Computed example of a mutant assay.
Amino acid sequence: MSPLDHIFSNVLQVQTEDDLRKEMVAFAKRIGFDYVTILCAVGQVNGEHKQFALNNYPETWDANNPENLKRDPIVAKLKSLRARPTPVLWGPELYQATDTMDLWESASAHGFHSGIATPILTTPHKRVLVGLSRDKALDNDLRVVQHQVGELCLFTSFAQLVVDRIFDLDRLIPSLTRRELECLQWTVEGKTAGEVAIILSMSERTANFHLQNAMKKLGAANKYQAAMRAAQYGLL
Results as ranks from 00 to 15, higher is better:
residue 158 F to I: 11
residue 233 Y to N: 13
residue 153 C to S: 10
residue 27 F to G: 05
residue 62 D to L: 08
residue 152 L to A: 00
residue 102 D to H: 08
residue 141 D to W: 00
residue 27 F to E: 04
residue 28 A to C: 06
residue 152 L to P: 03
residue 2 S to G: 08
residue 208 N to G: 15
residue 157 S to D: 11
residue 65 N to L: 08
residue 101 M to C: 03
residue 132 L to F: 04
residue 110 H to C: 12
residue 97 A to M: 03
residue 234 G to Q: 05
residue 193 A to E: 10
residue 106 S to R: 10
residue 160 Q to Y: 01
residue 196 V to P: 01
residue 150 G to D: 05
residue 59 E to Y: 08
residue 75 V to G: 07
residue 169 L to E: 06
residue 101 M to I: 12
residue 218 L to G: 11
residue 197 A to K: 05
residue 18 D to H: 08
residue 88 V to E: 10
residue 71 R to W: 02
residue 115 G to N: 03
residue 221 A to T: 13
residue 186 W to N: 14
residue 233 Y to M: 14
residue 39 L to R: 09
residue 129 L to C: 06
residue 208 N to K: 14
residue 186 W to D: 14
residue 24 M to E: 11
residue 71 R to S: 07
residue 73 P to Y: 01
residue 88 V to N: 05
residue 143 R to Y: 06
residue 167 F to H: 09
residue 180 E to A: 07
residue 122 T to H: 10
residue 144 V to A: 12
residue 93 E to Y: 01
residue 82 R to L: 13
residue 174 P to H: 04
residue 68 N to K: 13
residue 212 Q to V: 07
residue 224 Y to A: 13
residue 151 E to F: 02
residue 32 G to N: 04
residue 117 A to G: 14
residue 189 E to H: 12
residue 186 W to C: 10
residue 182 E to H: 04
residue 34 D to W: 00
residue 19 D to Q: 15
residue 203 S to L: 03
residue 193 A to Y: 09
residue 163 V to P: 03
residue 233 Y to D: 14
residue 171 R to M: 13
residue 176 L to N: 07
residue 120 I to Y: 02
residue 60 T to N: 13
residue 128 V to Y: 10
residue 171 R to S: 15
residue 203 S to G: 14
residue 139 D to S: 14
residue 5 D to W: 00
residue 87 P to I: 02
residue 84 R to Y: 11
residue 164 D to T: 02
residue 125 H to I: 04
residue 142 L to F: 09
residue 60 T to G: 14
residue 203 S to Y: 01
residue 120 I to T: 06
residue 21 R to S: 09
residue 229 R to L: 15
residue 31 I to T: 02
residue 203 S to T: 15
residue 126 K to T: 15
residue 95 Y to N: 06
residue 231 A to N: 12
residue 71 R to H: 06
residue 101 M to P: 00
residue 142 L to H: 08
residue 16 T to G: 01
residue 204 E to N: 10
residue 229 R to P: 05
residue 184 L to W: 03
residue 90 W to I: 03
residue 210 H to W: 12
residue 21 R to C: 12
residue 116 I to N: 07
residue 120 I to F: 01
residue 115 G to S: 06
residue 206 T to W: 00
residue 130 V to G: 10
residue 193 A to Q: 13
